[in-house]
Design a protein around this nucleic acid. Structure first.
Lengths: 238, 238
DNA sequence: CCAAAAGTGTTAACAGTACACCCATGG
DNA sequence: CCATGGGTGTACTGTTAACACTTTTGG
């Protein structure tokens, strides 16, 4: 294929200007029936000392032997670096790509945003990690959009919109509860994401339907809360 | 902000390797009750003579006075360049970003894919344009995925999946019919996208509800088809 | 008159909403 | 014994799927 090789060589000589490429992560969890997002306090300019989403540059390779990493791999790597959570324990999906010029004062930086869902039993491990002093779970409702670095307010709002929409037709709530959960724990997740109360009785019917459909199965034991113990269930992965 | 300026200068000297950045377009229309996608026959290596999605490089700027263009602007520009259709006559939305290493033999190229919806009365103008000989509307059902350039088969399938999903909750079908349309014309669009028949009577009921909700209003005149003439309607933009 | 599409109507099944009510437990 | 959340039931409403039927046109 010397035809191709020629074209490739010519193309490399041409050297169009290229943007820097990053991935940013919107990492959610639900704690105390409240939707939280993981924010990092920046240690360096620009936006030094401001709160920002975790993220970093995509390893792109040198165009030769080093081929770099896939976008998804970059997102996974950043997730592990910033949270310390084991690979595979967290739901991760591409959200949207933000490339407005001027969104980064350092120059043209395009970012591929991902969102992640962390189970609440893993959430405390994140802020207990090596980056303890500058990573924090913050209530999505109370985050001050105006002080977030870059265009991260827009990214955050896009991610919230996405999980609100997906909640109705995709089983994402199961990534925000422990491996076993009670009916009201799952309902609390729905309420935290939607931001409004959900009739316990009606939610229970939808829950029962999922059991009948084999999406959920009952697990042994009971959840002891100080009130009446609740049955616990687990999500059936397929 | 000399703190920022220092950081910016230091960052520019660092010069991480950067990927090339393109936008690719999945341009849909519906002709003869069949979902079509616009394909281009490539004139240059790699994948010379293969069919591909239209697209091109994002103008990124030189990091100085030239700031380049936004991603959406790049997609709009490519759309105009490749279809010749007037700005604003076509629905355009970001789809997904594909950045698998090895997806382009020339090196690391990340592409932000967009999808577009072209009204059928405008569709013939596209293939009649200056690029007439190498742009073609092809039936989505019959496109040979295996011979498409790059990872464009994957991009196409992602776009089809997207519009199938959105059809149920977003008014995208109105971007695939002329300014005025009959009930069965709109139904034909739904059927073309879903790929299955839709009960005419039940579709009519949903249609009537949209009229009652003010989403659609009746337009003067009738659609003469050779059979019984049908009432025509128009979408009410809000 | 016949084929075909426009257009109307009916039914049963199902899913969502609102609400009343009983049950089990810790304090 | 009582406050609280777990858990059950029910009446009402709206939506969907399936299908029978009438109307209007061109050939």
């Amino acid at each position: 294929m010397s035809d191709d090789d020629d074209a490739i060589a010519a193309w490399r000589r041409q050297q169009y200007p290229r943007p820097a490429l990053t991935v940013d992560l919107v990492v959610f969890t639900v704690l105390d029936a409240d939707l939280k997002v993981l924010l990092i306090r920046r240690g360096e300019a620009p936006f030094r000392h401001a709160w920002a989403l975790p993220g970093g540059f995509v390893r792109v390779g040198d165009g030769g032997a080093d081929e770099g990493e896939d976008l998804d791999a970059a997102a996974h790597r950043e997730l592990v670096e910033e949270t310390g959570l084991p690979e595979g324990s967290v739901f991760l999906e591409q959200l949207y790509t933000f490339g407005r010029r001027g969104r980064d004062p350092r120059g043209r930086v395009v970012t591929v945003a991902y969102y992640a869902l962390v189970r609440p039993d893993l959430a405390p491990l994140v802020t207990a990690g090596t980056d303890a002093e500058h990573a924090e779970w913050r209530s999505v409702a109370h985050v001050d959009r105006a002080t977030l670095a870059f265009d991260h307010a827009e990214i955050l709002d896009t991610a919230v919109e996405r999980i609100r929409g997906k909640l109705d037709y995709a089983p994402i709530a199961f990534d925000l509860v422990p491996a076993t959960f009670s009916v009201s724990e799952l309902r609390a997740v729905h309420e935290a994401i939607k931001g409004e109360a959900d009739d316990p009785s009606n939610f229970r019917r939808r829950f029962r339907r999922m059991v009948e459909d084999g999406l959920i199965e009952q697990a042994p034991g009971k959840r002891i809360t100080g009130r009446r113990p609740a049955a616990v269930y687990r999500f059936v992965r397929r």
